[in-house]
Simulated assay, not measured.
Amino acid sequence: MCGTENRSQLPLAAASGCSCCSTEAAPSPTAAAGATTVEFAVDGLTCGHCVQTVEKAVSAVDGVESASVDLVPGGRSRLRVQGTVDAAVMREAVTAAGYTFAGI
């Protein structure tokens, strides 16, 4: 169960979702000069807490400068990763966080 004191305001990609998410837009991360951005599909995310969990897990990987998720509750969400990225390592980070890595 997540505590309300540590929640971040995260956007939803659709109007529906769980009650712990905000529909207000969060600031986008800025890319460092020359950074590579790679997108992956992730299944199983339903709320802002899920997004935060995946972003935190992926951001901890060596070579990742930033990670952000476009949430699609009940659908396939998009994970954007900036930096030096290996798909196998991203799969491991996402699955270790408890979600399904659906590929590039």
Rank of each mutant, 00 (worst) to 15 (best):
S66L: 09
S19I: 14
C2E: 12
R78E: 01
V69F: 03
A41I: 03
T37A: 00
G44W: 07
C21H: 06
A13N: 15
P27C: 09
A93Y: 00
R76G: 08
A87Y: 07
A31D: 07
L12D: 07
G17M: 04
S19D: 15
Q9C: 13
T46I: 12
V89W: 06
D70P: 04
V69I: 11
S28Y: 11
G34N: 10
K56G: 06
T84M: 05
G83C: 04
P27I: 09
S8A: 15
F101L: 01
A35D: 11
P27A: 15
S16Q: 15
T53G: 02
A14G: 12
D86F: 00
A88L: 08
E92C: 07
T30H: 14
V54N: 01
S59P: 07
S8L: 13
T37N: 02
V61Y: 07
T4N: 12
S8F: 09
S16E: 15
G48S: 10
T4I: 12
V85D: 00
S68W: 09
E92S: 09
S8P: 11
C20K: 09
A41T: 10
K56T: 10
V69Q: 03
V51K: 04
P11D: 06
D86A: 12
S22Y: 06
N6G: 13
S19P: 15
R91D: 00
A96M: 01
D70N: 13
A15G: 14
M90D: 05
V85C: 02
A32F: 05
A25N: 11
S28L: 11
